[in-house]
Design a protein around this nucleic acid. Structure first.
Lengths: 216, 216
DNA sequence: ACTTTAACGAGACCGACAGTCTCGTCAAGC
DNA sequence: GCTTGACGAGACTGTCGGTCTCGTTAAAGT
């Protein structure tokens, strides 16, 4: 995803009036090339600040200074502050494990929920993610990116439920979107407010609550 | 609540060193009195902007201008922008109806959940509340006030559940805090993301999901 | 009436911060 | 060696929350 965003800013240059669409891709690249070390330095600095931030806002200048980079370099490759932060977070932490498929809905669901809760509790990315969500409140661009991200998470969980229902482990008329939202609703609510734990026990009880205790 | 906050700023004046605590309350009020019409004008203007905002941020200057008031007047009575906005919202919309106690947990829960969902869907305060939450992301003061508010909401729902459990409508070992968070978690998740409805049907299904369908 | 006190409207001012612009420099390819 | 574009540095702009100041005005005591 990081590369996609990075390119975005670049091909905006193709908007010369009446230049013809092939002009953008046709002209070979000349001049000095992008320095990969700089990209890494920016991403690393952003992630470090994000992790250490504990909810405090991050400034672009701080990221640039920490990376030893000019602000313009940053804005040359990312469209906004939020994009950099999200990129930094997903670049490292973003290897999504595929949801399990053990043949038992109860088992799969418990695993997914527990993993989600666990990641939010344990990881150093917890404060980072909290900060990111805060930034998203005032950064429409970031909000959109985050919305897309949560969308794929929902879809993944939805798949698990669909498989379970196909196996007859859930009544055919059960509202699966509601179940998905009950999981992530509780998750974000507790994650952002922090008034109650997101531990293993909570995951266990949530799973039991969603699958009626009597269900196989 | 409005009055309380308003006073807060005022008695800060009592912090003269070694003046004695009774000095604050003892000295009769002299000088020009607070103009109630101004308070109303500020609150009304803030609410109007909040309702019309549709998620867009509200500036203090806009509120002051809309109320025909100097910024200092605003800051004389409220400690921050967020406090004004929250005050404006709770001042009008804030008459909390006491939760029902019909003797049936299922009935009470359905009523509370449906009322909560309904209020968020129907009311013109929906965008206002969304804006407020957004502002809270960057305004620690407002975040604290909002946290307190949601705390009382949780406590109210918790009471309903406690009564139900006392009547034996819920197993004694059920995690009631989890149930509460499942309700408000889903609520805020859908309210803020807006990807799925918070209608009567959703309230119905959520209630059924929390109270095992077979329970009396 | 006169004085004191504090609220009021207006708006200058400050500090932070996102994002832009400019400039001198440096590397990649012709 | 010449053109092109990335780079670091940092000045600059615009916005906004919050403070400060000032001249005016209303309430209360004398």
């Amino acid at each position: 995803m990081g590369e996609d965003r990075a390119m975005e800013a670049n091909d905006a240059e193709g908007s010369v009036p009446d230049a013809g669409p092939e002009d953008t891709a046709a002209r070979p690249h000349t001049g000095r090339r992008r320095n990969e070390a700089v990209r890494r330095a920016i991403l690393d600095a952003a992630l470090r600040l994000l992790v250490e931030s504990e909810g405090a806002p991050i400034t672009v200048e701080a990221v640039a200074r920490a990376a030893g980079v000019g602000k313009q370099t940053l804005y040359r490759w990312w469209p906004s502050k939020g994009a950099v932060l999200l990129d930094a977070l997903t670049d490292r932490a973003g290897q999504d494990v595929p949801p399990p498929d053990t043949g038992s809905l109860r088992e799969d669901l418990r695993t997914v929920v527990a993993a989600t809760f666990d990641a939010a509790q344990r990881a150093p990315w917890a404060p980072a993610l909290r900060t990111l969500v805060r930034e998203a409140a005032t950064d429409p661009h970031l909000a959109e990116l985050l919305r897309a991200y949560t969308g794929t998470r929902r879809a993944l969980l939805r798949d698990v439920l669909d498989r379970g229902r196909a196996r007859g482990e859930l009544p055919a008329d059960r509202d699966l979107d509601l179940v998905v939202d009950q999981v992530y609703g509780l998750f974000w609510y507790r994650f952002l407010l922090g008034h109650a734990p997101l531990d293993r026990a909570a995951a266990e009880r949530l799973t039991d609550s969603l699958l009626a205790p009597g269900t196989p």
